[in-house]
Design a protein around this nucleic acid. Sequence first.
DNA 1: AATATTAATAGTCATATTGACTTTTAATAT
DNA 2: ATATTAAAAGTCAATATGACTATTAATATT
Lengths: 234, 234
Amino acid sequence: MIEYSSQPHYLVAVDCIVFGFEEGRLKLLLVKRGLEPEINKWSLIGGFVGPEESTDDAALRVLKKNTGLEGVYLEQLKVYGKPDRDPVERTLSVAYFALIDIQKYSKQLNADYQAEWFLINESPQLIFDHNAMVADARQRLRYKAALHPILFELLPKKFTLPQLQLLFEEVNDMKIDTGNFNRKINSTGLLIKLDEKDKSSSKKGAFYFRLNHKKYQSASHLILNLIPGSKLDL
Amino acid sequence: MIEYSSQPHYLVAVDCIVFGFEEGRLKLLLVKRGLEPEINKWSLIGGFVGPEESTDDAALRVLKKNTGLEGVYLEQLKVYGKPDRDPVERTLSVAYFALIDIQKYSKQLNADYQAEWFLINESPQLIFDHNAMVADARQRLRYKAALHPILFELLPKKFTLPQLQLLFEEVNDMKIDTGNFNRKINSTGLLIKLDEKDKSSSKKGAFYFRLNHKKYQSASHLILNLIPGSKLDL
DNA sequence: AATATTAATAGTCATATTGACTTTTAATAT
DNA sequence: ATATTAAAAGTCAATATGACTATTAATATT
């Protein structure tokens, strides 16, 4: 029988950077680590890759086990492979980032799980290299969101244009001109205007919109130009 | 002493998709596999990750060992983590793609190593999931090249605009209008026109250009718009 | 009931970019 | 001298963009 004799073997983990958006602020979902070392410290949602599952499957499983979340946007970020990143023994981590609609899951998250939302800019010190993972994921999110319509994954089914603009402004940490933003979003044809208005934040109220799912699916890999001055740095 | 008791351990490999460009065609560097199983079959350049090196370092080492290449453009593509992708035992592979100037290395490659260049569209059946890796790498190259000036990595120090256009056409598998292409490239300010001309492919000759390295470094992460109709699919 | 207030939404306009196309130019071959 | 070739420059209408202004719809105030 053939074998790769004497090659070293390593642990392989997955870690998920879970983004949410609430009250106009970008948030991050964290859990308290349940094993030594660094037990009870804040950590990304993660776990070891089992013998019968792919890394993608492991990420889905870990996400579901720790939060109950299913069917969310999930994308491989990158591998963190430095030999000493875990002090116990060598462990590679495949990082994934997820975008979820907080409202959809907030009740179940608080009731059944230990997970907690943090404002992205006020999140605590994390274990190992998890802070670096979050920083990389934010950068990737910004990059991707400037070119592809993925931020809708963070919003509820019904949302307003001012809400969407706030999300873009939060992700990109910049002010955006309302008129130009609306024109650009409308020109994508991705949104369908509803009759209902949200009057919680103004007297006039802002119309609710929902995604044109058909169009959205076919456009998810198209390159758009959602952020002003995208010739600039990202 | 703390340990992650009884978690499964796996082999971890790196595989490099090495792209080159010669005679107007995109090429792929392959080697004959040196160990069982599938010994002597064509394979990407790869190897196992050693205990003291990061995956990035492993990719650099493997690339140097198999080809002598150093200082080339190298970027992590993604992890291939399906449990059965290697028939011998579970092995995760971290795939990297490299862009190199063929001319710079052709002599040493032929003399000292087993590596061989193939036209990308005429490359042989590869072991395991390596064909899928190549397909993913091509897609990533096309995506990235539409937005960032990375294809220069495939050209020699001196090159002509027709040569560059041919490269873009090859990568994107489409015809590009010469006037518009030149205008776009010139507007980036990345190129410096030389006095010398290349007369090998026309009577008039085409001016050589070289990269403005200073500008190139600061522009490598900027989003440009190098491909016509980039609102289209990629 | 008229008016002020607020933020959403629509409209304007000069400028820049784009794609399709045409013209000129530089060198060699006949 | 003239024809040939492909590189390089130029033209132009259509579109996209960013900065800005005007209008509108609902509520609050007098």
